[in-house]
Design a protein around this nucleic acid. Structure first.
Lengths: 193, 193
DNA sequence: ACTAACCCTTAATCTATATTAACAATTTCC
DNA sequence: GGAAATTGTTAATATAGATTAAGGGTTAGT
């Protein structure tokens, strides 16, 4: 099994000893999910955190009319989780599924807890990962408060340059918070044809 | 100086030894800010994280027309920071000011770094604090994606029960993302008069 | 290679919320 | 205690983006 992608991700934050690497990888589960297959369904408890090595996942919530609203895409190198559900064991509000065939590693919350108690370096890693995620969500919220749809689209292109080409436009629309019809209109009006 | 409020907050997550408590409190700075006085101005680098013991702070961003949009209120027991600015030393996008006369403790990021290297228990505390904040922002984002203005107002009342009474309505409107005029209309239409 | 499912576009109509303006009520602070 | 600033209300008008509907194009799985 090739653990390099996930170990490289961790190496951005902390430097593991060989012992720590071995212990950590012993907790990793490898999984392959097919297009449209669920990794988490709203209502279930989120018991693991996943790291994508290939393909792409998405997390989304469903409104009372059944409309899907994408919270996050996870292309290779991204982590994905319903954090509140994992922390409190409440039912998840998020669904996580695969946009295309996807490979990932996951680690169970219970194993992660053990890992962090044994090696404080994983507390440090977890702190940094959560701090970065918090900073990202803070600024996403600011963007949503002060930017219009065109500006949010432009932000999206900067954040996920690889996805803009491969993703159906309706998924992008869902992420930036407009209907597919409105995004289509925007893209065919703003640019000089 | 009465450190009880901030020590009680930390005790929710980790149990400090007397040595750790003394070391930690030696890094704390006490500050009193008057109504409308800034703790952080957008454009400056956020170098500290603050914990409110009395009064109330708010963080907000300003749009291109000069409109203010509240990201967070911090009544007693809450932490407040522009996390990205603190992590990367980029200029802050958030302003933080006092809604009323407010007392707080702050700790400099540089001191916090030293503290966490010396005592892993503060890594653990920092991880849990950041994970909770991330969970909160994830669910705030979900709320904003799937709820309408009335439902967001109702959420606000649950989240900040003490503030609904003391805060000017226009601040509430700014937090939930509507104009003061619209909130006024909502409140005088929805309820049977 | 075929078929069903999915995706994109256009256009007409609709709606939640914004904007502007004017005035009354309340709060702050000198 | 009173002037100045801030806050809340109402109503008319405006707008960003939603909804609905329909046709044509593209993709995926058999």
């Amino acid at each position: 099994m090739d653990y390099a992608p996930i170990l490289n991700n961790i190496a951005k934050y902390v430097t593991l000893t060989e012992e720590e690497e071995i212990y950590f990888t012993s907790f990793l589960h490898y999984k392959k999910v097919k297009r449209k297959q669920y990794l988490l369904e709203a209502g279930d408890v989120n018991t693991k955190i996943s790291f994508v090595t290939n393909g792409c996942l998405r997390s989304y919530a469903v409104d009372k009319n059944g409309g899907e609203h994408v919270l996050q895409f996870a292309p290779p190198g991204w982590w994905i989780v319903d954090m509140r559900s994992m922390l409190t064991h409440e039912p998840a509000r998020l669904n996580i599924d695969a946009i295309e065939e996807t490979e990932l590693f996951y680690i169970l919350k219970a194993d992660l807890d053990a890992l962090q108690l044994k090696y404080p370096k994983f507390e440090r890693f977890g702190r940094m990962l959560a701090e970065n995620a918090m900073a990202t969500y803070q600024h996403r919220q600011i963007d949503n408060m002060i930017l219009n749809a065109i500006e949010r689209y432009s932000n999206f292109c900067t954040l996920y340059p690889s996805l803009i080409l491969s993703l159906p436009q309706k998924q992008v629309a869902s992420y930036i918070g407009v209907t597919p019809e409105f995004l289509s209109k925007m893209l065919n009006t703003v640019v000089i044809k």
